[in-house]
Structures are given as structure tokens and as C-alpha cells.
Computed example of a mutant assay.
Amino acid sequence: MHTIGEAARRTDTRVETIRYYERIGLLDRADRSTGNYRLYGDAQLNQLSFIRRARNLGFSIEQVRALMALGTTPQQSCAQVDALARRHLDEVERKIADLDALRGELHGLLSQCRQGTIAECRIIEALAPPAGG
């Protein structure tokens, strides 16, 4: 059995995050010691590592919950897992496209900078609301 601090170190997860995952039912509740300290078994550490890896890949809490539920039926087709991962990838690609557009806009604004005064600043001018608005 591992204390919450040990579980945090072994899974590279903050103690507060472990408590949160437990509170929302994403992580199985820890056993308690006679001193009322949380104690985690290897199965919970594996569960926490799974959660941590999925979160690092950008899956939402609800997506992680769904993946964990699907993982409990190893004989089932992985079509649902694939579909969930594909939807997530589509979202990641959309965000990348949005960030690429944002980068282009910022490059455009910065290319107009002439290092003059604020009164001549093209960036401030572009951010200001239109006249009469």
C-alpha cells in the first residue's frame, strides 16, 4: 500500500489532483489507515497512471471516464475507443488550425511594428475597438 504522497511521486500527479479524481469518482476511493491516511494499492496506481497519461494526451475527464469504462470489457471490439480517439484527434487538429491562424495574425501585426511611439503603434491600433463602436 502507498500513501498519497508516494502515489503522487510514482505517477507524477499532484496530491490535490489525486484527491480531486477520487472525489469525482474517476479514481477508486483509497483505503484508510488506522490514522485515517489514504492508502493506495498497485491497482489504483495503475488506474492513476492511465488517467494521467490520458489527461496528458488532452482527453477530457469525461473522455477518460469513458475510456476507463470501455477498458473493463477486454473482449469487446475497440471500435468505440477508436471513435472516441478519432473525435479527440479531430478536436486537436481544429485547435492546431486555430492556433496557426492566430500565429499568422500575430506575425502580421508584429511585421507592421516600426518601433515608434504608442501613438503610432499598429498593434494597439488593431486591438482598439472601431471608432464609434
Rank of each mutant, 00 (worst) to 15 (best):
I96A: 14
L26K: 04
L70E: 03
G116Q: 12
S111C: 04
V15G: 08
Q80G: 10
L109Y: 08
S60Y: 07
R9V: 01
G132L: 05
D42F: 00
F59Y: 14
E125K: 12
A128S: 05
G41E: 12
L127G: 07
T117R: 15
T17V: 00
I118R: 05
P129L: 03
R114M: 15
A69E: 11
R9M: 01
L26T: 09
E22G: 08
G116E: 14
P74M: 07
C78D: 11
D98R: 15
P130C: 05
A8C: 10
Q75T: 07
C121S: 02
Q115V: 03
Q112G: 09
L26A: 09
A66P: 02
D12E: 13
Y40G: 01
E120P: 00
R38T: 00
P74D: 08
A126H: 15
L45M: 07
L45R: 11
R29A: 10
G108A: 03
G108V: 02
G104N: 14
Q44L: 02
R53D: 07
A97G: 07
R52G: 09
E125Q: 11
A85T: 11
E62S: 12
E22D: 14
E22F: 08
A131F: 02
D28S: 09
L70G: 00
I51A: 03
A128L: 07
R86K: 13
R10M: 04
R9Q: 10
G25E: 13
Y37L: 06
R94S: 08
A85F: 05
N36S: 15
I4F: 00
T3R: 01
S111G: 15
G58W: 08
G104C: 09
E91T: 07
E125P: 00
A128M: 03
E22H: 14
D31M: 05
A101H: 12
R53C: 06
A97T: 13
A83R: 13
A43K: 12
A128G: 01
L27N: 02
E16T: 13
T3W: 04
A126F: 02
S111F: 01
P129R: 10
L99A: 10
T73M: 07
R23E: 10
T73L: 08
E62Y: 03
D42E: 11
S60H: 09
S49I: 00
T34N: 15
E93K: 06
D28V: 08
I24F: 06
L84H: 06
T11N: 14
T17M: 10
I118F: 07
Y21D: 11
G132Q: 10
N46M: 02
G5S: 15
A54N: 04
L99W: 06
R114P: 10
S49K: 11
Q80K: 09
R32D: 10
E62P: 01
D100R: 15
R32S: 05
T73W: 04
G25N: 12
S33L: 04
S111M: 03
P129W: 05
V92K: 10
A54M: 07
N56K: 05
L70S: 04
M1Y: 06
L99S: 08
N46Q: 13
R14S: 12
E91N: 10
Y20C: 05
Y21F: 09
M68K: 14
T72D: 13
G25H: 15
L57N: 12
P74E: 01
R65Q: 12
G108S: 05
D90H: 09
A119G: 06
E125F: 03
P130W: 00
Q115R: 14
A66N: 11
V15K: 11
